[in-house]
Amino acid sequence: MADMLLHFLLVLVMPPLLLGVIGKTKAAFAGRVGAPYLQPYYDLARLFRKGVVISDTTTWVFKAGPVITLAATMIAALLIPFGKHAAPISFDGDMVLFAYLFALGRFFTTSAALDTGSSFEGMGSAREVTFSCLAEPTLFFALITLTRLSGSLSLTPMLNYVTLPLWADTGAALLLMLAGIFVVLLAENSRIPFDDPNTHLELTMIHEVMVLDHSGPYFGAILYGASVKLFLLGALFVNLAIPFSSGNTYLDWLLFVACMVALAVSIGVVESVMARLRLIRVPQLLVAAMILTAFSLVLVVR
């Protein structure tokens, strides 16, 4: 019960902190002090207190998009284990549900953007679904590889199977898988080099351009859902990259939190040392990530 409560607490509280750590890391690289680590929490609180402006041309889809997207992401949070602790919900095939809950959220986000009738938001939606079509196979190749190794179709036993002896035996395949998942992590969360979450130039945006017409609590739900999605894909990466446990339950939780913060710092470093790719280069990088995870599957098939 204590593990389940900690699981829920981390899902609810920690995701915005990752955004604060990323922002602080980027500020340090630029020689600035930067916003406080807790700035994302302040921003969310301000948005949830604001009113809402809704265009007369929109329908119920526009209002449902942020709510359904956040709900789907929170359900996905119940399926993935944090560290070596079991997820609150686990069953055979939950890895498919985990992946397609993100797809459900993406569908309603793009539908809400298209519902506005804006050409800019239509452009961002087209880019979002195009890049996701290339990122999704990478995730499934990684999950199939883990299924082959663990013999399970459930995320909890699948990820808990990744231990130091497994790294010693199939380290090359796991490294290729980690590289592919990290690329998907950046692409699915619209981070540099795929997108710049801080820009407001419509011709260069992907995710941000889709939510230009949302405001108040709806926009807050979108930002919070995006941070939870970053947290969950980061948890998937950390579960694979840190295959050991201390034997102490609470120390394992602290290790997981520390690794998530370290991952946020690494994302901030990547965004500080790289520039945003040209749009024609983005599919090439996503295809390369897919090939890496496909090779990882080839290496474990005997």
Rank of each mutant, 00 (worst) to 15 (best):
P16C: 10
L12E: 06
G220Q: 13
P137Y: 11
F91V: 02
C133G: 13
M158L: 07
L232I: 08
N189E: 08
Y224A: 13
L159W: 03
W253P: 10
A241D: 06
L79T: 00
T110N: 03
P283G: 12
V269M: 10
N248D: 15
A221Q: 12
V21A: 09
F131W: 10
V282C: 02
A45N: 05
L175Y: 03
L159N: 04
P36F: 11
Y250M: 07
I192F: 05
L254K: 03
L134Q: 03
L263F: 05
Y218E: 11
T138G: 00
L101W: 01
L134V: 05
I89K: 10
R302F: 02
T69F: 15
G31C: 11
I181K: 01
T138L: 05
R49C: 08
T58S: 08
G34I: 11
G180D: 03
T57R: 14
F131H: 04
W60C: 05
H200V: 10
F295H: 04
I267F: 10
A126H: 04
S215I: 05
L186M: 13
I242V: 15
A168S: 10
G93L: 09
I75Q: 03
S152Q: 12
L164Y: 05
H7G: 09
E128M: 09
L174S: 07
I267V: 15
S55I: 00
L101M: 03
V228I: 15
D3M: 09
S245R: 10
T145G: 12
G234E: 12
A172L: 14
P193I: 02
I206K: 12
L236W: 05
T58L: 02
A262D: 14
V298Q: 00
L38C: 05
L178E: 01
L44W: 13
N239Y: 06
V269Q: 06
S190I: 06
L286C: 05
L146G: 13
A294G: 03
M274S: 13
R106D: 03
F244H: 04
T145F: 01
V13Y: 06
L38T: 15
M74G: 06
P193D: 11
T163P: 01
I181F: 00
L279C: 00
F102T: 00
D252R: 07
L240D: 02
L9D: 09
